[in-house]
Each structure stands twice: as structure tokens, then as C-alpha cells.
Nucleic acid binder design. Structure first.
Length: 266
DNA sequence: AGCTACTCCTGGTAGC
DNA sequence: TGCTACCAGGAGTAGC
């Protein structure tokens, strides 16, 4: 790479433009990988490892390779100048995305849970991991340290498919339910990938600019007030740990309220 | 340990 | 029509 151009410094997640410049100038991208929601560009110089650039698109971020001379548009935050007059552009309307130079990916993303589509994520692992925590299912499944890669949409869809209420506590889940949840998480993600993601507004696009089509498969997400596709009852929206959460109260019955002993006045 | 509240941002939209 | 106020989202942080 020939260098970098930073239009919005906070995209660098605390690093300075000079650090990005030093990281990429004269380096080549040896491979492009992914861990959870992070995209990882491994860099090398003269055949030797030379750190990485870690990208998180958050909601509205996009990466694309464009001719350097083309119009970057108002939302370009960072560009990495490639050979042959091209550049890798990070475009992000809402400025939540990150593009960070680092020695190792973990310096940016920290500890992450298993990949849902890899073998380490097994039904047995999920059952034991759920039992080992005492958290509500929704925030637990959104926690990237627990499981890497699920976001708000796919947690709501997976919990509906597993007929589990988002407020259910993780340590009360039966082995059968954990096995079902494991299967539907994989199925939900695999199908969403197959359909190139969910595009419910103009921001979400593939790198080629096409919208995904998984939004047409939504069972509950964004369907507040509309009938559940399984049973017909109106989908409900609640807020759980600051996240909009969609569910069917018939298909996903509320957790049994724990019995509270009322103490007599002393 | 695990919860809530707050922050970062801006385009879209609901309500007037 | 044009204005304002609020909402959506992932993840980091602070406080309890």
C-alpha cells in the first residue's frame, strides 16, 4: 500500500493517523479474514508478518475498492491507498464503525466466544455454557465474549425459532432446549448469509451494492403489532438491555416469575 | 457476577 | 410544507 487518508479520526478507535500511515505504507495485504463481526487484514512486508488492520462495520460501515480518482462521497471516513490507482475505502454514514491498525487482532477485539458455524460451537458446549452463566438469554447471546457474531436481529429470530423468551435465565434452559437453540442459531445465520444479510433501509448493502433479502424471512424482528407467522398473535416489542427486542408471547412464554416469599412485618 | 444507564452518530420518520 | 423530537444500532464504560 502507498499510504492512507483519514477523514474522521475516531474511526481509528484511539489510534492516530500517523500510526495507521506507519502501519500500512509499504505493506501488502497478505490475507483477509474474519473473527466474529471483525474483518481482519493481515499485513506483511518483504514476506514477513507486519501486523494487521481490524475493521468493524458496526451498522452502516462499508468496505469497497474504488478508483482513486472517483468521487468518494460525503461519508468516506478512511481510505487505504492501493496499487494501480485504486483505494480501499471505508464508508460509514453513522461513524460507529472502526478501522484500527494493531499488532494482533485480539488487541482490538479482545476475547471472543466461539464461532457459531464452527465445530467448537456444539450443542453440548452451548448447554454447559448456558448453565455456567446466570444471565438473561438476550444479553448473553449478544455478548461477543460468549458467542461471536450474533447481533440484535439474529438473536431475536433465533430465540423465536427456539421458542425461548428473551428474558429466560440461561441456567434454567434444558438440554433439549439448548440443543434446539444451537440448531436454530446455525440455521438462522446460515440462511441469512445465503441471502446476503438483511437490508431494511438504504444503508445495508453487499460490497457490490446489492441489498440482502433475509429481511423477507423475519419472523419477529421489526414486526411489532403484526401477526406472528407461527400462531397469529401480534408480535410484541420490549426493551432488554437497551435493545429493541421482538417476540411472540404465545410462542415464547414468559419465564415463570420466581416465587417471592413475603416476610411478615417484624 | 450481572444489571442499567449513558455515550457515540446521523438519516429517517412520526407528530405537529 | 416544514419544523422538531425522537429512534435505530454495537460496544465500551461507569456505577450499583
Amino acid at each position: 500500500m502507498r499510504g492512507s487518508c483519514v477523514e474522521w479520526e475516531r474511526t481509528l478507535g484511539g489510534k492516530r493517523p500517523q500510526e495507521l500511515e506507519r502501519a500500512v505504507r509499504g505493506a501488502r495485504v497478505a490475507r483477509v479474514g474474519r473473527r466474529g463481526k471483525f474483518i481482519i487484514l493481515d499485513l506483511e512486508r518483504r514476506g514477513r508478518e507486519a501486523g494487521c488492520v481490524v475493521v468493524h462495520l458496526r451498522m452502516t460501515g462499508r468496505l469497497s475498492v474504488e478508483p482513486e480518482r472517483s468521487e468518494p462521497g460525503p461519508w468516506m471516513r478512511v481510505a487505504l491507498r492501493l496499487d494501480k490507482g485504486e483505494e480501499l475505502r471505508f464508508v460509514d454514514v453513522r461513524k460507529f464503525g472502526r478501522l484500527v491498525p494493531a499488532s494482533r487482532p485480539a488487541d482490538v477485539h479482545g476475547e471472543l466466544g466461539p464461532e457459531p458455524l464452527e465445530a467448537r460451537f456444539s450443542a453440548d458446549w452451548l448447554y454447559e455454557a448456558l448453565r455456567g452463566r446466570r444471565r438473561m438469554l438476550k444479553p448473553l447471546l449478544l455478548d461477543q465474549r460468549f458467542l461471536a457474531g450474533l447481533g440484535n436481529i439474529y438473536v431475536d429470530e433465533a430465540l423465536h425459532a427456539a421458542r425461548l423468551h428473551p428474558l429466560r435465565r440461561s441456567d434454567g434452559i434444558s438440554r433439549a432446549k439448548a440443543t434446539l437453540l444451537h440448531a436454530v442459531i446455525r440455521q438462522t445465520l446460515a440462511e441469512a448469509i445465503e441471502r446476503e444479510g438483511s437490508s431494511f433501509d438504504s444503508f445495508y448493502r453487499t460490497p457490490e451494492g446489492r441489498p440482502g433479502s433475509y429481511q423477507h424471512q423475519f419472523q419477529v424482528y421489526g414486526r411489532t403489532g403484526r401477526p406472528c407467522r407461527s400462531c397469529g398473535r401480534a408480535v410484541v416489542r420490549i426493551v432488554v438491555s437497551q435493545r429493541g427486542t421482538h417476540l411472540c408471547t404465545r410462542c415464547q412464554p414468559r419465564p415463570r416469575a420466581r416465587r417471592v416469599r413475603i416476610l411478615p412485618p417484624s
